[in-house]
Design a protein around this nucleic acid. Sequence first.
DNA 1: AAGACAGCCAACCGCACCCTA
DNA 2: CTAGGGTGCGGTTGGCTGTCT
Length: 292
Amino acid sequence: MGRHVCCTEKKLRKGLWSPEEDDKLYNHIIRFGVGCWSSVPKLAGLQRCGKSCRLRWINYLRPDLKRGSFSQQEEDLIITLHSILGNRWSQIASQLPGRTDNEIKNFWNSTLKKKLRQRGVDPATHKPITNAVQSDTKKPGSDNSSVNEALGEEKLMVKQVFNPFPETEFQAVSDSNYITPYPNEMLPFLGFEDYTGVLDVSDSYGYGDSSSNSNSSNWTCGNIGPEVTDVLETDHVLNWTSAEVQLHASGDEQFEQKIVFPCQENAMRTLCRDPFGTSREALANDLNMDYF
DNA sequence: AAGACAGCCAACCGCACCCTA
DNA sequence: CTAGGGTGCGGTTGGCTGTCT
């Protein structure tokens, strides 16, 4: 382990990127793609390490990045996702089209934490600041004093929520960019055979290797409300809406849950992809849009 | 006008994980 | 099985910029 080889080389430049460097990196990746990051700087004629190039591309040069300040809806979603996922910035970012993990992390640390505290909410636990302490006292084995313990417990819970579908058991959900909209208690009921609730808005703007899952989403989407169509008729900028999604579990259980998700043109296109051709076509027709 | 301070954000660092030979 | 290279991620840092005194 330890430090990466490229980072120890002394000749390499550090610090802010010049416009010329940006041009070189951008042109190289547009023309040849990424391939191996460690070879990118050499091929692009840059005195940078591959890691630095990767970061620059992901956080600044990617053409699908959204600029500008966060909308209220994005802000709300970040808070919601953070309450579920904790500091898993990359996974939070995967649900916000055009936003990077770094950007969200900075926004959280500089702005959102402060806002939550002003509202009397502990940004670490997402509980009212006074109640967070009180609730700790109820937990078995808790000595009531440690916020860190509370945090640790939250992290454990998050793990259970977020990775309920081991790749070996359900190959369609094969990476961590997926977020389930399910509450904890529903997870045990969801079968592998007919698992259909995962919203995939990640691979239309994913990082780096985005090819591996492009055909593997496995979900159906029912009862999308009229508000979705409204979104599609706007200017294809980032919009937000809600939709009713039916979640079919194995057996006869069926769940419904209102969820909120980001809608961008690409995201909606992704949303309309599912493994069942007829419903995909029907859905696309309903939404008056192309499908693939 | 200038120095101090605070906030923001781009970029770096170090670690963990994955993959392959 | 193991070592080493490549990659991704979260935490942290440092510099720039705006605001205050």
